[in-house]
Amino acid sequence: MSKLIKFNIDGQECMAEEGRYIVDAAKDNGVYIPTLCNIPGLKPKGSCRMCTVKVNGRLMTSCTTPVSDGMEIENHIEEIENYRKMIVELMFVSGNHFCPSCEKSGSCDLQALAYRYQMMVPRFPYTFSQKDVDGSSPLIIKDQNRCIMCKRCIRAIIDNEGRSFFTFKNRGIKLEVIMDKEMGQRMNEAEAEKAMEICPVGAILKKEKGYDVPIGQRKFDMKPIGSEIEN
């Protein structure tokens, strides 16, 4: 076991193994740092910026920064929480996140974060995106309008030769996650299941699946995201 070090988050004394990413180390100490793109066990990408914290006064993503001895981390402070709320709102307006008609509603990480941050209305104007919906795979539907470019599927849904089913296309505001047409054809049940599961929003849906959990029993109906971590 590697060396234990001390650090603090918002003044709270914490301990963790050296080299552990801040977001995980915080979790071990009962502190929730919100994430969207992060998946435990996969190389972090730091693309959603939700987990931004201040480390010794500098903005860093806590999913990509390892803790070190004596680190001073600011997490639940007004400036940071305002950035996070803005990020959630930006994601809402940049796509079509019409919750009432979404299969993932109630179990969606983005929606859950909006609940957590009590987003009554995004402060930014909606863009009402009209991007393509790809239903070419026999097993899944890929709705680009709901995608938040977290890269989770790109990193997690990989075939035996190490090739990803999903990749980015274009750049900037035109960035999209696309499915390799040929690989989409031969995707198997388990991969499709995992793709829907790993998508934090409703951008990847398994065909013929949805609305199978009654309202009131869905993942985030009764308890806020992160409440399982916070003590």
Binding site: P100, F128, Q130
Partner: peptide, 16 residues
């Protein structure tokens, strides 16, 4: 409600 806040169901036509 959602329609007042973000256009809601009728706004599905936005962009068309």
């Amino acid at each position: 409600g959602e329609c007042a806040i973000m256009g809601g169901l009728p706004a599905l036509r936005n962009g068309i």
